[in-house]
Nucleic acid binder design. Sequence first.
DNA 1: CGTTGAATTGACACCGTTCAACGACAGTGG
DNA 2: CCACTGTCGTTGAACGGTGTCAATTCAACG
Lengths: 262, 262
Amino acid sequence: MREELAQFPMTGRFLASRLRHAMTALEKELLESLVDDVRETNGYTKILSRGDFCEYSTILIKGFMTRVIEDETDRSIVGLQVPGDFVDLHGFALKRLDHDLCALGYTQFGIVPHERLRDVLENEPHLARLFWFGTLLDASIHREWLSKMARLRAVGRIAHVITELWYRLRMVGLGNSSGFTTPFTQVDLAHICGLSEIHVNRSVRDLREGEVVDFRRGRITILNADRLKEMARFNPAYLYGEGGLEVGSALNKEAGERQMAK
Amino acid sequence: MREELAQFPMTGRFLASRLRHAMTALEKELLESLVDDVRETNGYTKILSRGDFCEYSTILIKGFMTRVIEDETDRSIVGLQVPGDFVDLHGFALKRLDHDLCALGYTQFGIVPHERLRDVLENEPHLARLFWFGTLLDASIHREWLSKMARLRAVGRIAHVITELWYRLRMVGLGNSSGFTTPFTQVDLAHICGLSEIHVNRSVRDLREGEVVDFRRGRITILNADRLKEMARFNPAYLYGEGGLEVGSALNKEAGERQMAK
DNA sequence: CGTTGAATTGACACCGTTCAACGACAGTGG
DNA sequence: CCACTGTCGTTGAACGGTGTCAATTCAACG
């Protein structure tokens, strides 16, 4: 991962631990060259709004973004993005977004003009297919969230979000076996899990007192990974990881094997 | 729609009321010719299982399919497909599925071998982009479901599922202003909404007694469309109906209403 | 006419929301 | 240095939506 980032500082995490190994050096260089500009934000920032017309897509380099659907009374976070994610790639084919895109904390992201993407689609079918794969990965995560929303109670949902983030971050070379850092607050967690912030607070306390995970703004510490995954009924298959890379061995042998078996 | 089906009996509903108008006659013919075989099922049938490797994709011609994620104890329906949907197109890029695909009632679906899809992707960038669009549409629907799961109580969720189905069916020329027919049971509805079947039953009764909608196996009758949409807080923008991509107005409420009116 | 899956009903416990306060902490300006 | 301010986190009590358990009725169909 270190060499990858040295060579491709902006896009080196794209599909890391997934299909990045299937990219040729030329494709990696092409992707890196697609980035026209790099921007950064600090604190809560709305990058794009529902209904906006898109002429470029963004690839997340540092920090976190959320996909938000809100109306007069409520606010839901329907997706999380971590570094390496081609965040609104789907804006290219959809032309307009069905949700807002919001940055949290300090972020850095690259701008990729759609005209350049069009070239890639027409001349680089293999890379095009990897881009497509990236957007399908998001859809797979949406589906897993839907199933977890339906079957898990408050603590389980929270445990699942934390576990997924942990896995996804480690896939792109961030965080470590003891935890990771994020700008997420308990209110954010409430919007992700479809719970009131009061109940999130109680559940977070339960997880801390049960010595499962210590969630706090800035730092999430995993205290008991097995228990955490059990509470979340976590099965990483839906993340489409390549069981062999950084993730599989370090995080969960069984899960990795299960994943490999499929 | 009638002429379209006469000319393209298997794929004539693909992206109807969305981007189908952007397809050339040649593209429509090509798509129709991709169908290698037609199969049919009767009653509850699992078409594909989570983890299966895919060598072909299926396009739904008649009937309904569900995307299912289940474990030892629970079962969730994380997606619904109606005629015209290129159901597991994403199996092409993902290689294996993260969920099961189940048919309900009587269905008819076309088989499209992945080798043929590969040709299309390499030689028909425009059609490829429409295929991509189709999978992104599913993702958009997933997101809307997530937001509704988070913010709506039981009756609202049920109202939303019914309203969405009604809209989607009418987009592909099925159902009418008074309702539509489906094989869904109350238990199915429970799996879709993340509720117990008992509570679904109570909520369905409330909707019927409130003269909003009469849900019963086989036939759903819309009694008060305005009230229904209000309870579901339904905004059809996320379905990317006609007028959205070109005119740029699908992502506001009035445009959706207009579309429904015709 | 009996069988079977689907729909229905009632009682009761519990999870999560709501309302209302309070506490902890960092940044800011006097 | 301290008061002020805003954000985030924390706690308690009461209410109500939903799940669970257990039975019963209904409808379709061979």
